[in-house]
Design a protein around this nucleic acid. Structure first.
Length: 386
RNA sequence: UUGCGUCACACUUUAAUCC
C-alpha cells in the first residue's frame, strides 16, 4: 500500500494524472485496500483529467465500501474538484455533509471554499466561510481578504469591501492590484468618486502599478459622478504615464469632452487617435460630432462626416440623428434631408431619433409639408411616433 | 498527504431627439 501511495503521489505531483489512474486500476486488481491517502490522490488525479463527475463517482465508491470514514483531506480534494469546475453549489452541499458527519473543516477547507465561492461570485457563502475562520480564531490569509474584497465589491457592498481592505492593510498585507481594481470600481459605481480616487492614490503610494482596469474604474467613477473635468484630467495623466489606452477608453474621454461641450478637445483627441494608431470607430466619430453639435460647430461636424466617408466608416443612427440635428440651427433642411437620404441608401434603418430630428429641422425651416410626409413615411416603415 | 510556488479563477469601460 505504501508503495502504491508513494507512486501515486509522485505521479499526481507531476501532473501525470492519466498514469496515476492506470496505477490505481492495477492496484484494484490486488487485494490491497486503498487508504484515505489513496483516495485523496486518485480523486485529485481523476478530477483533473475526467472532470468533477468522476471525482464524485470515486468518492461515492469509497463511501459504499464503508471501510473508512472520509477524512478532511478527501473532502478537500473533492471540494477542489468542484471549485475548478465552478460547481459552487456542489461545494456547498459537500460542506454541509462535512458538518453533518462531524468532519471538522481545516484551514485548507476554508481556503478552498472561499476560493470556489469567490470564483463563482457567491457573496453570502464566501462571507460565511470567512466568519468560520474568524470564529475558529484563525488568521485569514491574504487570498481570503483579496477574495472577499472582490466578491463584496462585485455584490455592490463597497463599504464592506473597504472594511476588508482596511483590515488587510492593518494586518500588514498588501491588497492585490485586482482587489484594488474591483474595490475602486465598486466605490465608483456608488458615485463616491472622491473615495475611489483615494484608493487609487493609495495604490500608487504603495507601489502597485495601475493597469487598464484601474484606469477604467477610476475614469468610470468620475464619469458616473458627472465629474467630467476630472475625468479628462485623469485620462490625460494616464496617457502621459505611457499606459496603453484602448479605443474604449478614448471614447469615454471623448464623452467627457462632449459633456463639457469642449469640441476642440474632442476633435483634438479624435485626431490624436488616428496618429496614435488607435482606430476611431463609429462611436468615436458619433461622440465627436455630438460634441460639435453641443458647441454649435455645424461646419466642423459636417467635416467629420466627410472624413468618415473618406475612411469608409459607415454611420449609424446616432451619427445620422446628430448630423440632422446640427442642421436645425441654421435651418439647413436640404442638407439634413440629403444626409437622411444618404443614410437610407446606405441601408441604415432610421429610428425614432432620426425621424424626430428631421421632423424638427423641417418644422424649424417651415417645411410643414415635408414634415407631414415624413410622418407618413415613418408610419409606413413601422416606426411609431412618440 | 488537501489549499493561493506556478498555472487557473475572480475585477473594468462608451454616445443621441424637441420644449
Amino acid at each position: 500500500l505504501t508503495a502504491y501511495n508513494s507512486l501515486l503521489a509522485a505521479l499526481v505531483k507531476n501532473s501525470m494524472d492519466v498514469k496515476a489512474l492506470t496505477v490505481y486500476e492495477s492496484m484494484k486488481q490486488t487485494k490491497l485496500v486503498p487508504s484515505m491517502y489513496t483516495y485523496t490522490l486518485v480523486i485529485r488525479a481523476t478530477s483533473k483529467c475526467q472532470g468533477w463527475e468522476s471525482a464524485y463517482r470515486l468518492f461515492n465508491e469509497m463511501l459504499s465500501k464503508e471501510i473508512h470514514k472520509p477524512n478532511v483531506f478527501v473532502y478537500n480534494a473533492l471540494i477542489s474538484a468542484y471549485g475548478r469546475a465552478k460547481k459552487w453549489n456542489r461545494a456547498l452541499q459537500i460542506w454541509d455533509k462535512m458538518k453533518q458527519v462531524g468532519c471538522k473543516e481545516s484551514m485548507g477547507t476554508c481556503c478552498l471554499l472561499i476560493s470556489t465561492f469567490v470564483g463563482c461570485r457567491q457573496f453570502e457563502p464566501a462571507l460565511e466561510v470567512f466568519f468560520l475562520v474568524i470564529q475558529r480564531g484563525w488568521r485569514p490569509t491574504d487570498s481570503m481578504y483579496k477574495g472577499l474584497i472582490c466578491v463584496s465589491a462585485h455584490e455592490g457592498r463597497w463599504m464592506l469591501a473597504l472594511e476588508f481592505f482596511h483590515e488587510m492593510v492593518a494586518s500588514g498585507a498588501r491588497p492585490s492590484l485586482l482587489a484594488c481594481n474591483s474595490l475602486i470600481n465598486s466605490i465608483g459605481k456608488a458615485g463616491q468618486w472622491n473615495l475611489a480616487f483615494q484608493v487609487y492614490n493609495w495604490m500608487r503610494a504603495n507601489g502597485l502599478c495601475p493597469d487598464a482596469y484601474t484606469c477604467n474604474a477610476v475614469l468610470n467613477a468620475f464619469m458616473n459622478a458627472g465629474e467630467y473635468d476630472q475625468g479628462v484630467q485623469f485620462f490625460l495623466n494616464m496617457k502621459e504615464s505611457g499606459l496603453h489606452l484602448d479605443r474604449e477608453v478614448y471614447n469615454v474621454a471623448l464623452v467627457a469632452y462632449q459633456k463639457l461641450k469642449d469640441w476642440k478637445g474632442a476633435l483634438g483627441l479624435l485626431k490624436e487617435m488616428d496618429t496614435r494608431g488607435v482606430q476611431p470607430d463609429v462611436m468615436s466619430y458619433g461622440i465627436a460630432i455630438t460634441a460639435c453639435e453641443a458647441g454649435g460647430q455645424t461646419s466642423l461636424a459636417l467635416m467629420v462626416y466627410e472624413h468618415m466617408k473618406n475612411v469608409r466608416c459607415t454611420p449609424n443612427t446616432y451619427v445620422v440623428a446628430a448630423l440632422i440635428r446640427i442642421c436645425k440651427r441654421q435651418s439647413l433642411w436640404h442638407i439634413a434631408r440629403k444626409i437622411f437620404e444618404e443614410s437610407c441608401r446606405a441601408g441604415i434603418e432610421p429610428n425614432i431619433y432620426v425621424y424626430n430630428a428631421l421632423i424638427d429641422v423641417f418644422y424649424k425651416s417651415k417645411q410643414v409639408t415635408l414634415a407631414k410626409n415624413l410622418m407618413k413615411q415613418m408610419h409606413i416603415r413601422g416606426c411609431k411616433p412618440d
